[in-house]
């Protein structure tokens, strides 16, 4: 799950209020959907489902979360992952293994009646599959939210769009976006509110990371931040065993990156990974203009198709179909 540089950048994370967030926000779609799927669950870990057993947690997240974003003046844009690079294959295989094991443990826990364990394992077994992505895109389209298809990593594309000035910040939980060069990363937006972490109930609020402040504070260049990432491990390479963020920071600050890597992982060439972060495949082929939402279409999809309550859907739609205070012509027909 991204790069574990949390320990060294904790000082540069600043809480951010909703008032400071209006504007175009590029949302790392796969990350957000994953968050929705893990958080929006019943107490025993079962995701929300319609009567046919189809998962609806992500649709619920998109509708209810985003309508509250939009009400607050945030203009969301979703960026979906394209083809994973060959570099990431090991990570993907590893994640699949974890998910499969968790899936079995979840079943066992449910049988035992161990609710806490079931919830934990269910979350770990979460996967964002094609059906989840397709239905998400369908709903986003109906809501008039622009969708961008990244040629490669969604985080890379999102970071590029912010760096280019087309959007204000990237929304993701993963710090990778900083390595990809987003000037501003906002975390916890998709998950803000009361949340259960390792069994404890805590309140999560949005936080902001500014790349230039982080690099300036740590006396690093972006390349050096990527070097730290490479040492502790990224989605594209396995890190050096026993090296965490703090040790990696020291190594890089002392200029011993090449030496250390050669010593610990002889034969590993970090150049392709460095290049992946500095020059990832991105596209300029995207449109950010929000479309008109289609309330009838949303009702049809969610209420008729997935058993959502009409009342709740209608209430959520007030957040974006018509701006607060906007009357409709209905009163005059």
């Amino acid at each position: 799950m991204g790069v574990a540089i949390r320990d060294i950048i904790a000082d540069y994370k600043a809480p951010v209020t909703w008032e400071a967030l209006p504007g175009t926000a590029v949302i790392d779609a796969n990350n957000a959907l994953y968050q929705f799927l893990t958080i929006i669950r019943q107490p025993d870990g079962t995701p929300l489902m319609d009567r046919n057993g189809r998962v609806t947690s992500h649709l619920s997240g998109i509708l209810f979360r985003l309508s509250s974003f939009m009400e607050k003046g945030i203009k969301p844009v979703f960026v979906f992952d394209g083809k994973p690079t060959a570099l990431k294959q090991a990570t993907i295989d590893e994640r699949r293994k974890i998910r499969d094991t968790a899936g079995e443990k979840w079943k066992e826990a449910v049988e035992r009646g161990d609710e806490a364990e079931a919830y934990k394992q269910a979350r770990s077994s979460t996967r964002v599959d094609t059906a989840i992505i397709e239905t998400s895109k369908e709903l986003l389209g109906l809501m008039g939210i622009p969708v961008v298809q990244a040629p490669g990593e969604g985080e890379a594309q999102a970071s590029y769009m912010v760096a280019k000035g087309d959007a204000r910040y990237v929304v993701s939980q993963d710090y990778d976006c900083l390595l990809f060069g987003t000037p501003v990363l906002v975390r916890n937006l998709t998950v803000s509110g009361k949340r259960k972490i390792r069994g404890r109930q805590i309140t999560v609020s949005p936080e902001r990371l500014v790349l230039s402040d982080t690099l300036g504070g740590l006396h690093l260049t972006r390349e050096q931040l990527i070097e730290i990432g490479i040492l502790i491990g990224t989605d594209f390479n396995e890190g050096v065993q026993g090296v965490g963020a703090k040790t990696a920071l020291k190594i890089v600050q002392k200029g011993e990156f090449v030496q250390k890597l050669a010593e610990k992982q002889p034969g590993f060439d970090p150049a392709p990974v460095m290049d992946m972060f500095l020059h990832p495949p991105v596209t300029d082929d995207y449109a950010l203009a929000a479309g008109h939402p289609d309330p009838e279409g949303i009702r049809k999809m969610l209420c008729d198709g997935y058993d959502f309550s009409v009342e709740r859907v209608d209430r959520a739609m007030e957040g974006f179909t018509v701006k607060a205070g906007q009357k409709t012509l209905e009163s005059w027909f």
């Binding site: 479309g291 008109h292 939402p293 289609d294 309330p295 009838e296 279409g297 179909t321 018509v322 906007q326 009357k327 409709t328 012509l329 209905e330």
Partner: peptide, 25 residues
């Protein structure tokens, strides 16, 4: 609006439509 129903007759063409949010016609 992104799509509409166009009426044709002897005298010409016409359309009347409201946007999906029911705010404008």
């Amino acid at each position: 609006i992104p799509e509409c129903r166009l009426h044709t007759d002897d005298d010409g063409i016409s359309t009347r439509a409201v946007d999906t949010a029911n705010v404008a016609m």
